[in-house]
Amino acid sequence: MDNIKETVLEVILSILPITVVITILQFTLVWLPLEMFLQFLIGVLMVGIGLILFLLGVNIGLLPVGEMIGSALSKTKMVWLIVFFGFLLGLVVTIAEPDVRVLASQVDQVSGGAIPRDILIIAVALGVGIFVAIAMLRIIFNINIIYILAVGYSLVFLLAAFTPSHFVPISFDSGGVTTGPLTVPFILSLGVGVVTVMKGKTSTSDGFGLVALASIGPILSVLILGVIYG
């Protein structure tokens, strides 16, 4: 019950500022049609209810399951299994990510179908999956994250030089949308679960950085897509 109250309060405090600002603008400068303003208020209510249910679902289901999967995989002591399921889970959770689908739909609409929605979703998901697998290898072999980030972003800027210019902003937006509300909790809890078993609870901070690595993958994959389509 306390968890529900905290979640409800958190959501109210999150959406209240934007609601107040838009309401002030409505009655001072903007003066939207009454019907549109009422639609906004109904939308705020629906978003609030959705966020409450979503956050409760994350806390009850996604976080514990992600951590337990990471722990169970680590107990097998099989590197290939940990890496493979890291890739697979990164792939499927990104396909389910709402932010990715919104971006893909917008790009498909703006480009007139030149960049197909499904192709972009698959490219982004593959990028996340590959870099989650690399993140698992980093944890297992204790590789410094700075080296991987340096190599990853060096490749990003190298590929950007050979990619059509309109693909570059799309690629960086693709990296941003993978830090959405579905992908981040699951990937973080997966990393913490792996580290807890392999290195002990005192080293759980090593499980962080997965999101930073995972966001590089979509940028690279969309840039490669740009080279292909370009």
Rank of each mutant, 00 (worst) to 15 (best):
S165P: 06
Y147F: 12
N59M: 14
I4N: 08
I22N: 00
L51G: 15
L155I: 11
I95C: 04
L126Q: 02
A214Q: 10
I143N: 10
V128G: 01
G207K: 13
G193A: 15
L16V: 08
D173T: 12
I12R: 00
A160L: 06
V197P: 07
L63T: 13
L62A: 12
E35V: 14
S203I: 10
G86Y: 01
G176W: 07
G90P: 10
G230C: 11
S205G: 15
E10Q: 01
G230N: 11
I15N: 13
F141P: 05
G191Y: 00
S71Y: 06
S203G: 12
L34I: 13
V156Q: 05
D108I: 01
I82H: 12
A160D: 07
T7V: 10
N144P: 11
N3R: 11
L91R: 00
L53A: 15
V65D: 10
G61T: 13
R101D: 05
V93K: 01
P185L: 11
L155H: 08
D99H: 03
L16P: 07
G57I: 13
L62V: 15
A161Q: 06
S154G: 14
L120Y: 03
G226A: 09
G217W: 00
L13D: 04
V20A: 13
N144R: 13
V211D: 07
L62D: 07
Y229A: 02
V192M: 10
S221D: 09
I228V: 15
G129D: 03
G57H: 06
L225H: 07
L9P: 01
F157K: 05
I82F: 09
P169T: 08
L25W: 01
V177R: 06
G129W: 06
D99A: 09
A161L: 14
E67Q: 09
V192R: 04
G129M: 10
F186C: 14
V11K: 01
F208L: 15
V110Q: 03
Q106D: 12
L137D: 11
L73C: 00
S174W: 03
F54Q: 12
I119R: 02
